[in-house]
Design a protein around this nucleic acid. Sequence first.
DNA 1: TGCCAGGCCGGGT
DNA 2: ACCCGGCATGGC
Length: 212
Amino acid sequence: MWENKIRKIYEILFKRFGEQHWWPGETDFEIIVGAILTQGTNWKNVEKSINNIKERGLLELEKFKNLSIEEIRELIKPSGFFNVKAKRLKNFLNEFSRRFRSIDEMKTMERDELRKYLLSIKGIGKETADSIILYALKKPIFVVDAYTRRILVRHNIIKGDEDYEYIRRLFEDNLPDDEKLFNEYHALLVKLGKEYCLKKKPLCSECPLNNI
DNA sequence: TGCCAGGCCGGGT
DNA sequence: ACCCGGCATGGC
């Protein structure tokens, strides 16, 4: 039997929900834009913004980087916090262009160096940086979000006051260093969270992780 | 109808 | 080093 809860949770979730096919975006650039737009925001709203951008044929690095903050703001309104997010997107594009010519070039940077670089960009915090590294750049790193923390707390794996890095290492230290696995695991936690572990729904009597 | 969503920053303690 | 208010739309 499983002696490791972190591995066991993955097995249960995968059996219950199957492949999640994340990130829900087609290109590396789309994933990066989505990662910034989804900060504190329902994914449905992000999709509306992504569609606005896509409909106008602007969801490409070379096109998007020519847009002004005002133009970006109008495109991303549905995903909320549009003033700050327009600045964050513009700022990311500026910083990115200063250092790289393409996203493929960014992929050649070593993971931890890349993380430090992304975190130095204003508007990119830990979760956004890790989402970009894992889902856009396809490098193994475990993404921690509000669902991850809440699920672990509700199932008594952690107390709740642990910081981001502690939780990230909890997963990385108990799993093989596998990008596909980290991709699937985080997606499964979000899936579980949306169905069984919302703030509003504290009991989770139907949660597949009960009695692990 | 109100509460919340796949956070992050900056200022105050 | 934490803690908290601000940021804003749309879904349920």
